[in-house]
């Protein structure tokens, strides 16, 4: 059941990148990764993924800033973005959703939940088309 969709993972922890890549690849996703915050927006524009998984605590730029930039740009305004963060407090969730995050997920996560969330986002994308 490969759907050929592309997901861009913006994350700086190598082990987490590997885990997410494995989980989504097995489901038929094409996973691209990017581990710097400063040029993450450019990477999104360049790679034009179907959806983005975005870490918040990046070394040189906050994930929230990246999200805000994405939402400010017409090209990426509607792009589904899942914020995946180790900061799981309510205020973090609210901050992410108010900035326009499509989904909010806290680390550590159940693999199945991550997969389902990504599928839902993809489905929403299809309905939206």
């Amino acid at each position: 059941m490969t759907n050929g969709k592309r997901v861009l993972l913006i994350e700086d922890e190598p082990n987490i990148i590997e885990a997410v890549r494995f989980i989504l690849s097995r489901d038929g996703w094409h996973v691209a990764t990017h581990s710097q915050g400063s040029d993450a927006v450019d990477a999104v524009r360049a790679k034009a993924p179907d959806l983005v998984i975005l870490d918040v605590m990046l070394p040189d730029r906050s994930g929230y800033d990246i999200l805000a930039d994405l939402r400010a740009d017409d090209a990426t305004r509607a792009l589904p973005v899942m914020v995946l963060t180790a900061r799981g407090q309510q205020k973090d969730r609210e901050a992410a959703l108010s900035l326009g995050a499509t989904r909010f997920m806290v680390k550590p996560f159940a693999n199945a939940d991550l997969l389902n969330a990504v599928r839902d986002m993809a489905a929403g994308l299809q309905t939206g088309d």
Binding site: E13, N15, I16, A19, V20, I23, A86, G88, V106, K107, P108, F109, A110, N111
Partner: peptide
């Protein structure tokens, strides 16, 4: 949470 995330996944 960061190492835990890898461990759990």
């Amino acid at each position: 949470r960061t190492p835990m995330t890898s461990i759990r996944a």
